[in-house]
């Protein structure tokens, strides 16, 4: 219970911000928070609370897996790399060959979500393949 007390603010924020299928569990003194956040802002807010309660995530007592709700097929997403092009790959994995690139800030069409990490996308130029979800932002 001590972990839940330490992160009470984080748990309450997750409860009050409309996270779907929210599950808060504690096993072996690790707190697991799972669910789907309604938006990227909600997810970022939870992470900044987590960072505040446990500066630089040093304690190793939380696994916070709150994903942004899956992008609908056909929705648009912007490439949010820092500055570089985003690799588009044949399959979901960095071991897969690169079939093309999407430019920084380019808007692509999301076809489907392969898993929590990878999405199948198509660029306006017609290149289709998988990109890492972290570099996509729903628009």
């Amino acid at each position: 219970m001590a972990v839940q007390e330490k992160y009470a603010e984080l748990i309450n924020a997750a409860k009050s911000s409309g996270v779907n299928n929210l599950q808060v569990r504690e096993e072996n003194n690790v707190l697991y928070i799972d669910g789907q956040a309604p938006s990227g802002q909600v997810k970022d807010n939870l992470w900044s609370i987590y960072n505040k309660l446990d500066p630089d995530f040093r304690s190793g007592d939380v696994v916070l897996d709150v994903n942004v709700a899956e992008a609908a097929a056909g929705s648009k997403a912007k490439v949010i790399t820092e500055s570089t092009n985003l690799n588009i790959r044949k399959g979901p994995g960095t071991d897969q060959p690169i079939v093309g690139k999407a430019a920084h800030n380019e808007v692509v069409t999301v076809q489907s979500q392969a898993n929590d990490q990878w999405s199948l996308i198509k660029t306006d130029k017609g290149v289709e393949g998988y990109v890492y979800n972290q570099y996509l932002q729903q628009v």
């Binding site: 690790v30 995530f57 190793g60 007592d61 696994v63 897996d65 994903n67 929590d116 990490q117």
Partner: peptide, 9 residues
């Protein structure tokens, strides 16, 4: 997001 048991940073 990879569902680890724990993350030691």
């Amino acid at each position: 997001a990879l569902n680890p048991k724990k993350v030691n940073n």
